[in-house]
Each structure stands twice: as structure tokens, then as C-alpha cells.
């Protein structure tokens, strides 16, 4: 009897996992094995009308973060048959799986290979194969350690620039004094290094006063504890600079509990990053002051470059490392509109 119950419970468990697995299959359908791609390929080729540009996209899975989710959707929305593309997608967080998928794409005879690599190394051989096969390679979001000759262009974010934009905005407020609580992301991550750099420069120059600088490793609840400890120490502060939206929300929760006002024309200036829709709505309501964008929208830029190449032109506007830096905005609560939220907001 008890064994039966145990069996039943395991059954439930398996069923619930299967149920969960089935549910996301619809939005994340392209996350198929390379083998499956291969089988589907001939049928697709037959169905695909002549003249479609064949594109292979190797990316990280949408479950990685809200950023990645928006990034994946952006590519699915831009590289459609209506826009003249026959696109195949592959998602993995593992470099070796990404590499074999890229090889498969090359064998399938694609025209363009688009890569956001899981790791920066190990790509040389595959990129050379692509070059030999006459396939143009574009990198997006993440750079690869290799000879720049091996790819056409890279569309990436400049995290340090995001920090600069935010700090310049903060300086433009012209507050009588800047007492800043700085909540950092996971130490050593690209986003943390970039967003910390600009503020650190201000601390060093003495223009801004560092009340506390602590890492919450992207954890909302930890950010709240950090701000609580400052409130309890009764040290004055008037700016909260959180390196993502979640941590800004945690910080604001601590302010709310302590009866400290925040937002436009209030006691404390609240700054976040990433531009989640819910965060931008906080801006619109005047509860926060600033949100910096980290743009996941690279598909259109790449599509434009592909069209240029197709029409026999050359790509312009690249820097020395063959990069195009995504244009990234910072939103001010006094100027943000519903339209901005719909266009630039991530998630729901």
C-alpha cells in the first residue's frame, strides 16, 4: 500500500514535470536539437520560396533572463518569411552544443550565421569553416575572442556607456549634494563592472559621496536589507543607484517601510537598469526617477546590414573592433510616456 503511494507520488512528480515542459513548448518551440533541424531542413527548403535569405541564429535560451527573452523574441520577429528570411534558430547555454549547431547550419548551406556565444573562446575553427563556405558571420550581444577578419560585424552593448549615461543624468539633476547608496550586481559580471565604473569615478573625484557600496548579487531581498541597514544607521542619503530593476525595487520597499519618500521631487532619487515594463510603469507613476536601458534589440541592425550586403554595398559605421554599439537610452521619469513603455519595456 505504502509502496503504491510512493509510486503514485513519483508518478505525480513526473507528470507535473512533463506538464510544465509541455506548457512552454509553444513560445520556445525553436529550441530543438540540431538533428531535428536537419530533418526538417529539406522539407523547409522545398516549401521556402526562391529568393528567401537563409539565416542561422545561435543564441542563449530565453529562460536565461528577461533580457534574453526579449532578445530571442526580437530575432524571431525580425527574421520572418514576410521580411524575406528563412531563419533557423538554436538555443543553448553550452558552448559545445552551440558549436555543433553552428556546424550543422553551415552544412545546411545557410547564407548568414548569427551568433551570441555562450563562451568567448573555441569558435575559430567554426568561423573559418563558415568563411570557407562563403557564409557571412555576425556576432550579437557577446563578442568572441578571434581574428576580426572572421566576422562581418558585431552588434553589442557598451555597459560602461550605460553607466556613463546614468551618471551624467544624475549630475544633470544638479543636487546640492550627492549621498549615494550604490547596490551592485554579481561582482565581476559585465553589467556590474560597466555600471559601477562611472559611479566609482565620481566617488573618487569627490563630486559624490559614497554612503555605502555593497553587492546584492542581483537579489532583490538582499538589496532591501542593505538599504535597511543604512536607514538604521541614520546616515543621510538622497540617491539610490541600483544596478538592475529588481534591486531598485528591493531598495524602494525598504524606503516605503521606513516612511521615506522617493521619486520625482521627493527625498530620495531612485535609479535602476534594464527597463522592465513594470519598472518603467514605476517611472511613469513618478515613484522612481531613472531607468537605464540595456538594449536587447539587435535584430533590426543586423537585418539592415544583411540587406546592404545583399544589394552589393559595404557595411559602414563600424569601430576598430568591427563593432556597432547599440544605441541605449536612459529614461527620465519626468519625460517617459506610455509609448516608451510599449516600445522599450521588457517582459509584461
Amino acid at each position: 500500500m505504502k509502496k503504491l503511494i510512493a509510486l503514485l507520488l513519483t508518478g505525480c512528480m513526473v507528470a507535473s514535470i512533463a506538464g510544465c515542459a509541455a506548457a512552454p513548448a509553444a513560445p520556445a518551440a525553436p529550441a530543438a536539437e540540431p538533428a531535428a533541424e536537419e530533418e526538417a531542413a529539406p522539407a523547409e527548403e522545398a516549401a521556402a520560396a526562391e529568393g528567401l535569405i537563409k539565416v542561422g541564429v545561435v543564441n542563449n535560451p530565453p529562460s536565461e533572463s528577461g533580457y534574453r527573452e526579449a532578445n530571442v523574441n526580437d530575432f524571431i520577429n525580425v527574421f520572418t518569411a514576410d521580411n524575406g528570411y528563412d531563419a533557423k534558430f538554436f538555443y543553448s547555454i553550452k558552448n559545445d552544443e552551440q558549436l555543433s549547431a553552428a556546424r550543422q547550419f553551415i552544412t545546411d548551406g545557410i547564407d548568414y550565421l548569427l551568433i551570441s556565444a555562450a563562451e568567448t573562446t573555441g569558435w575559430d575553427a567554426v568561423l573559418k569553416d563558415a568563411q570557407d563556405a562563403g557564409i557571412s558571420v555576425f556576432l550579437f550581444d557577446r563578442m568572441i575572442d578571434c581574428d576580426p577578419e572572421l566576422f562581418e560585424a558585431a552588434v553589442v552593448s557598451d555597459m560602461a556607456q550605460e553607466g556613463e549615461t546614468a551618471v551624467n543624468w544624475l549630475l544633470s539633476l544638479d543636487l546640492p549634494e550627492y549621498n549615494v547608496i550604490h547596490i551592485q550586481g554579481a561582482m565581476g559580471s559585465d553589467a556590474q563592472l560597466g555600471r559601477t565604473g562611472a559611479l566609482d569615478a565620481q566617488f573618487e573625484s569627490g563630486k559624490m559621496n559614497k554612503v555605502v557600496q555593497q553587492t546584492a548579487t542581483w537579489d532583490e531581498a538582499e538589496a532591501k536589507k542593505i538599504v535597511e541597514s543604512v536607514i538604521n544607521s541614520k546616515e543621510p542619503f538622497n540617491v539610490i543607484y541600483a544596478e538592475n530593476d529588481g534591486m531598485a525595487k528591493g531598495a524602494v520597499a525598504a524606503l516605503d517601510e521606513a516612511g521615506i519618500t522617493h521619486g520625482v521631487d521627493k527625498d530620495v532619487v531612485v535609479m535602476g537598469f534594464d527597463c522592465n515594463k513594470w519598472a518603467l510603469r514605476e517611472l511613469l507613476a513618478g515613484n522612481w526617477n531613472y531607468d537605464g536601458q540595456c538594449s536587447p534589440f539587435q535584430a533590426q541592425v543586423i537585418s539592415d546590414m544583411i540587406q546592404t550586403l545583399e544589394s552589393g554595398g559595404t557595411i559602414e559605421g563600424l569601430n576598430d573592433a568591427k563593432q556597432i554599439i547599440s544605441v541605449e537610452k536612459g529614461f527620465d521619469a519626468r519625460e517617459i510616456t506610455e509609448e516608451d513603455i510599449a516600445t522599450y519595456g521588457l517582459g509584461e
Partner: peptide
């Protein structure tokens, strides 16, 4: 699994 349940990053 937690991600699958809601499908979004931070609901």
C-alpha cells in the same frame, strides 16, 4: 521549472 511555470522573467 520555476521559470516554466510563469514563462516570464520577473512577474
Amino acid at each position: 521549472i520555476a521559470y516554466w511555470i510563469n514563462g516570464g522573467a520577473t512577474p
